[in-house]
Simulated assay, not measured.
Amino acid sequence: MMGSYNISCYSIDKAYQDYILPGVSRTFALTIPQLPPKLQEVVANGYLLCRIADTIEDEPSLSIDQKKFFSNTFIAVVAGQASAKFFARALYPLLSEHTLATERELIQNTPRIIRITHSFTPRQRAALERCVRIMCDGMPRFQNTASLRGLADMETMDRYCYFVAGVVGEMLTELFCDYSPGANRNREALHSLMISFGQGLQMTNILKDIWDDRKREICWLPRSIFEQTGFDLDKLTPGHYQPAFGDGLQHLIGIAHAHLRNALTYTLLIPPNEVGIRRFCLWAIGMAILTLRKLHRHRDFSASQQVKISRRSVKTTIILTSIAASHDKVLTFLFNLAAKGVPFIPLEATRNDSKATPVLQASPEK
């Protein structure tokens, strides 16, 4: 699929992609290299496309109309219908210091990333283009009304998580099934779990980043959950913990836990011989469930650093899941061990009656 895109230019662009990835995401820079070489490049490229879309939405100096313009332009750029150079030259000067330097650099070098995008197979490009289109269409619906009041309810949180993470799960599943015939045989089952996988990771990040988001005058927590526990999100203040807030937080931890169990089931549907894909999934799941456990133990935290898992925990997660990557029973045991004591709410309970607070359960033993 190189066409006129010569090997020398490709090598330079590929080197830049490898260089910039750790600057915009330490986690993905850690997990993506675990994938088979043929998947590493396209997944890294897909992630960087999502980062560009996020940067547009997160830039506070852009007006709603400007964000809409650049989001629509970026959709066209990824689809090969608009100039990446025009996009980069128009957007880059408008970015403020609120946007990380590495993200500004990524915007400036959009043409390099897009040249790699356009070198992929039609199926790979279709998966990436669909993800960017849905993300750029959906995120503004929430960013335009984001405030400290939070989201209305759990259903709204589900939709938000889909646009920022669930759609990424869809993209990855398409890429995995395109690469692996064994994964493709489980396509239907993987599709039933892929959005939940993304939501589990995104909800964990939302809960961990509560206080960082509030500094940006944003809250992604569902008001209705806290109303049920008797807490008003408008009164949320760091350093002034109230048990009613802790109860609402515990409820959301239980829902995130259920999504992460779906993520584990998803991973076990990947053939055991696809060790790289499994490691890619397992490392993210392991770090997320350990973060939920720390959040549950420290619901009175007032800074994300207080619930960040240690480097030792990260290293242990990597070692254990790597050793056990092909062994389903061992992986299930390790997940249950990490999730011990973490509240669990069956997802069916959250859907059947949104007005009732589901009963928290102990972590299920499987």
Rank of each mutant, 00 (worst) to 15 (best):
K38A: 15
K38H: 14
L39M: 12
Q40Y: 10
Q40G: 03
E41T: 04
V42G: 02
V43A: 07
A44H: 07
N45W: 00
C50M: 07
C50L: 07
C50A: 12
I52R: 04
A53L: 03
D54L: 02
D54N: 04
T55K: 05
T55S: 04
I56K: 01
E57W: 00
E57R: 00
E59T: 02
P60F: 02
P60G: 03
L62E: 05
L62V: 02
L62S: 04
I64T: 09
I64R: 13
I64Y: 11
Q66Y: 00
Q66A: 08
Q66K: 06
Q66S: 14
F69I: 04
F70Q: 05
F70R: 06
S71I: 10
S71Q: 02
N72F: 00
F74L: 01
A76Q: 11
A76W: 06
V77G: 03
V78M: 05
G80S: 07
G80N: 06
Q81Y: 04
Q81I: 00
S83F: 10
S83Y: 01
K85A: 07
K85P: 01
K85V: 15
F87I: 13
F87L: 07
A88D: 01
R89N: 15
A90F: 00
A90Y: 09
L91S: 01
P93D: 07
P93C: 10
P93W: 11
L94T: 03
L94C: 05
L95V: 11
E97K: 14
E97C: 02
E97W: 08
H98R: 13
T99W: 13
T99A: 10
A101S: 12
T102D: 14
E103S: 10
R104L: 10
R104C: 11
R104H: 07
E105G: 01
L106F: 11
L106W: 08
I107S: 07
Q108M: 14
Q108P: 00
Q108L: 14
N109A: 12
N109W: 14
I114C: 14
I114E: 04
R115D: 15
R115L: 11
I116V: 15
I116N: 02
H118N: 09
S119W: 07
F120W: 10
F120D: 13
P122E: 11
Q124Y: 03
A127C: 14
A127S: 15
A127N: 13
A127T: 12
L128S: 02
E129I: 14
R130P: 05
V132T: 09
V132G: 05
R133F: 06
C136R: 06
C136M: 10
D137E: 08
G138K: 09
M139T: 07
P140I: 06
P140W: 06
R141F: 09
R141W: 11
F142R: 10
Q143T: 12
N144Q: 09
A146E: 14
A146V: 15
S147E: 10
L148D: 02
L148V: 15
R149E: 13
R149K: 15
A152L: 09
A152S: 15
D153S: 11
D153P: 11
D153W: 01
E155R: 06
E155S: 12
M157V: 13
M157P: 01
D158Q: 13
Y162W: 14
V164A: 07
A165E: 03
G166Y: 01
G166L: 12
V167I: 15
V167Q: 06
G169Q: 05
M171F: 13
M171K: 07
M171N: 05
E174D: 15
L175N: 08
L175K: 11
Y179I: 00
